[in-house]
């Protein structure tokens, strides 16, 4: 894996861990690990350095698993 991408993934996981206190895998659903929509936004806000970046909130409704969320966040960060 590209080291830069790897750093991102680590960042994402570290940030998620600040909000989620239970063990999780990519298959975990956001609901079962207690990641509600407010928290997902906080994770994104904490990771994206550009304050002007706009998030399409409706997209969040499609994210059901942590894997999907992780991929989506990576997209937001590296866009």
């Amino acid at each position: 894996m590209d080291p830069a991408v790897r750093t991102f993934v680590d960042d994402i996981d570290a940030t998620i861990r600040r909000f989620v206190r239970v063990p999780f895998t990519d298959a975990s659903t956001l609901a079962e690990i207690g990641l509600d929509s407010l928290t997902t936004l906080r994770v994104v806000a904490a990771l994206v350095p550009d304050g002007d970046r706009e998030i399409d909130l409706a997209e969040l409704a499609d994210l059901k698993t942590l894997g999907q969320f992780r991929a989506w966040v990576a997209g937001q960060v590296t866009r």
Partner: peptide, 11 residues
Amino acid sequence: LMARRTVGSHD
């Protein structure tokens, strides 16, 4: 429902 769109708005 929280409708903040930009990352900067969270502050």
